[in-house]
């Protein structure tokens, strides 16, 4: 599979984009020339210089440094959320499909109820009642998106469950636990990895969208959505301020999307 990824141009481009963002996130303190939080009103709206590669914002903070740190925030929130969602949806989706019967019907009922509301509305309501904060936002996001993933997992398991090798495993005397862990999960995992990696892009957009709306993330945090929101009042005088974080979001989301789509092509030709 690794060989196929390297041969696929789209996958390589996507992967390079993801790696660039990852490097920025991990090595942010090394790459960023200035402290992203340091306010210096005397130096506001400076043009590009060797000290501030992309100039400064309305509070005199280094835009470039803020963008680099922004990668930390976007990925730092999305990846844990994704891991929790993946775990939750694999457990729930698999057991619903495998056990079937009443358990499955209850699962369908609950998930249909949650799916009736757009994730945005659920997050708005939850953050509104739980209060601000990154943890609350993460919780709200997990709550609003897990069903969509769990349902997909469920459908994959349903297909796999009826295959002959599962029947053969039952005949061979395997327990349900063994059948799920040794047979079903390894066979659906490649498709799930594809599905989740395309999901990353959507979540990055969601996080940025929420912080643009002022939800969850504290003011002043160098998060791309929040930066976008802060720059919107200067859209006519200094349009580049709004363009930089926009481009970053686009770049990251596109990277994951390209990679995910390419993986899908590789797995199901």
């Amino acid at each position: 599979m690794l060989g196929k990824i390297i041969k696929n141009k789209q996958a390589v481009i996507g992967l390079i984009m993801i790696i660039i963002v990852l490097i920025a996130a991990v090595l942010a303190p090394v790459i960023a020339p200035n402290d992203p939080m340091k306010v210096n009103i005397t130096k506001k709206f400076q043009n590009n210089s060797s000290e501030y590669p992309l100039g400064t914002d309305q509070l005199g903070r280094c835009v470039f440094s803020r963008l680099v740190y922004g990668a930390r925030y976007s990925l730092g929130i999305v990846i844990p959320i994704l891991l929790v969602v993946a775990l939750l949806s694999i457990i729930l989706g698999t057991s619903a499909a495998y056990v079937g019967g009443k358990f499955d019907r209850i699962f369908i009922l609950i998930s249909d109820m949650v799916m009736a509301f757009p994730p945005l509305v659920i997050v708005l309501a939850l953050v509104g009642s739980l209060g601000q904060g990154i943890l609350n936002l993460a919780f709200a996001m997990i709550f609003s998106v897990w069903v969509w993933y769990a349902k997909v997992v469920r459908s994959y398991v349903l297909i796999e469950k009826n295959k002959d090798y599962v029947t053969a495993a039952i005949i061979a005397g395997s327990t349900d636990k063994d059948i799920i862990i040794k047979h079903i999960v390894p066979n659906i995992l490649p498709s799930l990895i594809v599905f989740f990696s395309t999901g990353v892009a959507g979540m990055i957009l969601m996080i940025s969208g929420f912080s643009f709306l002022g939800l969850g993330i504290e003011a002043g945090t160098p998060e791309w959505g929040a930066m976008l929101s802060g720059a919107k009042q200067y859209i006519y005088s200094r349009p580049y301020m709004i363009a930089y974080p926009g481009i970053c979001i686009l770049f990251t989301a596109a990277g994951f999307n390209l990679f995910g789509e390419a993986l899908r092509d590789i797995i199901s030709p």
Binding site: K163, D164, Y165, T167, A168, A169, I170, I171, A172, G173, K182, H183, P186, N187
Partner: peptide
Amino acid sequence: LRSDFQMVLQDSYSALNPKM
């Protein structure tokens, strides 16, 4: 009891886990 009665299915390709 399953060790006492076994079965060979029609389609052996799909009866084997492709990842094993």
